[in-house]
Nucleic acid binder design. Structure first.
Lengths: 135, 135
DNA sequence: CTAATTGCAAAAGCTTTGCAGCGCA
DNA sequence: TGCGCTGCAAAGCTTTTGCAATTAG
């Protein structure tokens, strides 16, 4: 309830109607991965008249604040996801469009190892598996 | 020299001037990762008057034919890379912008394993490590 | 009250498409 | 010759931005 307000303040953002509603949407939606357009439409369905430009601005601010992360799965449009503390990667089904989250400590370890072997420090990574149903 | 012509024919594509030039560009350029815009500009510099729309169409056809692959590193614009038979992933240095290619059979194996554990078949994947120089 | 935020519409990238003319097979 | 290909310009999409009005603190 008021939890969102605190999260926004901690992020250094004023508690405005659009920001609260968008944060609530991410916290309550069944679909964890939403594009700006998805977000905009869901707000409209919920009777919230929030401009699409505002949705984009708020999502960008949330990303900068570390509240959500942006994914560019295919290149078409970005999708956003609430940060819940648990890091994970994604598997996208080419047929159903379904997005599955997974985590592999071993892959994470190997990534770090490979970066270091090349004289670098691993800052971030992006792993997406494109799959189809097993016959 | 005539190698490109054969590659194009095998791909079921007519041997036209734009297609030959674009394929040569990818085979001879020092930079292995080119966006449509990069390709267009390099062609202009080489004195080839090929339309940007044609560049996009040819790159899309080459991708469909399996001659090149498309990467969406950041979401801004896609970059293309000649398929040389060796599969590899990429490491991008945040400071220098440098792109390093690497391959890990172990990560590949784990990916396949994970997809299968979830009841899927791995079709493709995208792995990018974002790194910075080790201090 | 004041600076931050919003909404609208216009603009900005990147990419695709319609169509008339040109070129390879 | 015929169908595919090219070029240009226009249109499409996602995302960003300018600006006046509104709102949070």
């Amino acid at each position: 309830m008021a939890g969102e307000n605190q999260e926004l303040r901690s992020a250094g953002l004023k508690v405005t109607h659009p920001r609260v509603k968008i944060l609530q949407l991410f916290e309550n939606s069944n679909e964890r991965h939403l594009s700006a357009e998805d977000t905009y439409k869901l707000l409209l369905e919920a009777g919230e008249e929030i401009g699409l430009a505002t949705v984009y601005r708020v999502l960008t601010q949330f990303e900068a604040a570390g509240l959500i992360i942006r994914h560019n799965f295919d290149g078409a449009s970005a999708v956003f996801e609430l940060v819940r503390g648990d890091h994970h990667d994604h598997m996208v089904c080419a047929e159903s469009g379904q997005v599955i989250e997974f985590h592999s400590a071993e892959i994470e370890r190997l990534q770090k190892e490979i970066a270091e072997q090349h004289g670098f420090e691993l800052v971030d990574h992006n792993l997406v598996l494109y799959v189809k149903p097993k016959k």
